[in-house]
Design a protein around this nucleic acid. Structure first.
Length: 499
DNA sequence: CGGCGCCGAAATATTTCGGCGCCGGTGCGATATT
C-alpha cells in the first residue's frame, strides 16, 4: 500500500513530515508505538490516518477538555465528521444522545476521569475499538502519580477493551518518563520513535539573582526591550497577578495574567485574546500552555525556576513554533525552588498520617478505608494518591485487613512515597544544577534527555556568546480590536443560556 | 523558605517601620447552590 497516495488523497500533501510515516507503518503492521515528536509535526494526522486505514474506531485520551474541543473542531474541518468529545461540556440530553449512537462515531475523545463512570464505560465497551491513543502521554508520568491518578488506570481500561493497538504521543519525555509511559500503559513490545527535543531557533539565557527587587526590575526591563508576543511564567498565582500590576505601572499594555484560580470564562477569554494577538503578554503559572497553538511567540521569560527540566522544556517550547528566532530567559533566584519543595511535602502523605489511617483508632474502626481517608485529614492530592493505592490493593471498600496484609501494604505505600519524593527532589536538584552551571545551556538540557550535543551554533545560548539584543524590537501592538473577544464570548454565553 | 499583608507603634498627625502569621501548582467530573 502506498501511504503517500493515501496522504495525497486525504489531505492533499505529497510528503510526510518527519516521523509520521514510520509510526504509521508500525501501527499498520500491528505494533504498539510510543512516539516522541516535537510539537507542530502533525501527531494528530498519524492516528487520523491509522484509524481511517484500519477502517476502525479510535478512543483518544486527552488531558484537557479545551484541548478536546479544539481537536474535535480540527477533525471535523479535516473531513472526519464522526468525531465527538465525551466530557462535562455536554448536558445530560446531549450525553444520552451520543451514548445511544456511539456506533456512529469513529473518533471519541475522553478524559481519564470520565471513563471511571461505569455507565459511560459500559457503553464504550459495547463497541469495538481498533486504536487506543494517549495524547500528551507525559501526563501519565507528570500527573498520574499524585495529581490525576486515573492516568495510571488506563492500562486496565485498554485491557478490558480487548487490547486494541496502542499509540502514546508526547513531545517531551526523558528515558525515565518513556519507561513510565510504557509501563503504565502496559505496552510490552512497543516500537519507540524518539526525536530530539532540541529547538535550534530558541536561544537560551539564564541570569542569576540574589535580590527579589532586582529581579522584578529586570523582568520589567526585558518586557520593554524584547520583541513580543511573550509569556512570563511564575511559580505562584499571586506572583503572576502582582507582576502584571508592576508591568502596568510601567505603562506596558496588552498584559494579562492567567492561572488555575480563574473561572473558565476568564481563562478562555485571556487565552483567545492572546492567540488573536489582542494581548501581547501573558503572565501565568504552569496552568497556561498546553494546547496553545500560537506560532509567533517570540519570548518566554521564567520569572521563577520551574520544578523540572521537562517542564522548563515544555514551557520554552511554546516560543518560535514558526521557526523564527525566539528567546528563553530564566531569571534564577536560589529561593525560587522553595515552593516546589513545599509542594512535594504537600502532595504526598506523611508516615504519621498513614500509620493513623491503618491504626485501630476508635474514630476510624467502623469505616471503610475510603471513608477513613476523609477522616485522617490528608491534603487533596495525598488523598487521591492514597485512594489509588488502596484501590489497587483491593482494600478501598474494606473496613480492615489482616495484620500481614496490612503491614505489606503500609510498607509498599511508604516505599512508593519515598521513591516519589526522591525522584522529585532529584528533578529539582537537576534544574538547579543546570541553572547554576557554567557551561553551554543547550548542551546541558540535551544531556538531561540523554541526547548528543549539537553543532556549534551562533544563536545557541548566553554561555556560547549569543547577544540578547538580537531579540529586541518594537512589538506590533494591535489594540484596535481589543475587547472584540469579550463581546464574542458574551454572545456565546448568552446563546448557551437561552438554548 | 520568603514574600505578602496585616497590625500596632513610632515619629508626627499621615507615612514608615518592624514583627508576626499565613500561604503557596497543575484538572477532571459530579454535586450543590445562586
Amino acid at each position: 500500500m502506498q501511504l503517500e497516495a493515501e496522504l495525497k488523497e486525504l489531505y492533499g500533501f505529497s510528503t510526510f513530515r518527519s516521523g509520521q510515516k514510520e509510526i504509521l507503518t508500525d501501527l499498520l503492521s500491528g505494533k504498539d508505538v510510543l512516539g516522541m515528536l516535537p510539537t507542530g509535526t502533525g501527531k494528530t494526522l498519524i492516528y487520523q490516518m491509522a484509524a481511517h486505514l484500519l477502517r476502525g474506531r479510535a478512543l483518544i485520551i486527552s488531558p484537557l477538555v479545551s484541548l478536546m474541543e479544539d481537536q474535535v473542531d480540527q477533525f471535523k474541518q479535516a473531513g472526519f465528521k464522526k468525531t465527538i468529545a465525551l466530557n462535562s461540556f455536554l448536558d445530560q440530553g446531549e450525553k444520552q444522545m451520543i451514548l445511544k449512537r456511539i456506533q456512529d462515531y469513529q473518533f471519541v475523545f475522553v478524559s481519564p476521569e470520565i471513563i471511571q463512570n461505569s455507565y459511560i464505560r459500559s457503553i464504550l465497551l459495547s463497541v469495538s475499538w481498533s486504536l487506543f491513543v494517549v495524547d500528551e502521554a507525559h501526563c501519565i508520568s507528570q500527573w498520574g502519580h499524585e495529581f490525576r491518578p486515573f492516568y495510571l488506570e488506563l492500562a486496565e481500561l485498554k485491557k478490558t477493551m480487548g487490547d486494541p493497538l496502542c499509540l502514546a504521543l508526547t513531545a517531551t519525555a526523558t528515558k525515565k518518563v518513556q519507561y513510565d509511559i510504557l509501563h503504565h500503559l502496559d505496552m510490552k513490545e512497543a516500537e519507540v520513535h524518539i526525536h530530539s527535543v532540541n529547538r535550534p531557533n530558541i536561544s537560551i539565557f539564564v541570569e542569576c539573582f540574589d535580590d527579589h527587587d532586582q529581579k522584578v526590575e529586570r523582568a520589567i526591563k526585558l518586557v520593554q526591550q524584547l520583541k513580543g508576543p511573550g509569556i512570563i511564567y511564575t511559580n505562584t498565582r499571586n506572583a503572576a497577578e502582582l507582576l502584571v500590576k508592576r508591568l502596568q505601572d510601567h505603562e506596558i499594555e496588552g498584559v494579562a495574567f492567567y492561572h488555575g484560580g480563574m473561572n473558565a470564562e476568564e481563562r478562555l477569554l485571556v487565552q483567545k485574546q492572546f492567540i488573536e494577538s489582542q494581548l501581547n503578554i501573558i503572565v501565568c503559572t504552569n496552568a497556561f500552555g498546553m494546547g496553545i497553538n500560537k506560532s509567533d511567540i517570540r519570548f518566554v521569560i521564567h520569572f521563577h525556576t520551574p520544578s523540572t527540566i521537562e517542564g522548563y522544556i515544555q514551557e520554552i517550547g511554546r516560543a518560535g513554533r514558526d521557526l523564527k528566532p525566539s528567546v528563553a530567559v530564566l531569571l534564577y533566584h536560589p529561593a525560587d525552588l522553595e515552593i516546589p519543595y513545599h509542594f512535594i511535602d504537600q502532595e504526598l502523605p506523611d508516615s504519621v498520617q498513614i500509620d493513623y489511617l491503618f491504626s485501630d483508632h476508635e474514630q476510624l474502626k467502623e469505616n471503610t478505608y475510603r471513608d477513613k481517608l476523609q477522616l485522617v485529614g490528608f491534603s487533596e492530592t495525598s488523598q487521591r494518591f492514597m485512594e489509588h493505592h488502596l484501590k489497587k490493593a483491593g482494600a478501598l471498600h474494606k473496613k480492615n485487613l489482616d495484620t500481614f496484609e496490612k503491614n505489606v501494604l503500609i510498607s509498599k505505600i511508604k516505599f512508593t512515597i519515598e521513591n516519589r519524593k526522591a525522584d522529585k527532589i532529584e528533578a529539582i536538584k537537576a534544574i538547579e544544577k543546570w541553572a547554576r552551571s557554567n557551561e553551554c545551556k543547550r548542551g546541558g538540557l540535551l544531556r538531561y534527555f540523554e541526547e548528543p550535543g549539537t553543532e556549534p551554533n551562533t544563536m545557541c545560548c548566553g554561555y556560547c556568546g549569543t547577544d540578547l539584543s538580537h531579540f529586541f524590537g518594537k512589538q506590533a501592538s494591535n489594540n484596535t480590536s481589543y475587547g472584540l473577544w469579550e463581546d464574542e464570548l458574551k454572545r456565546l454565553l448568552r446563546q448557551e443560556v437561552y438554548n
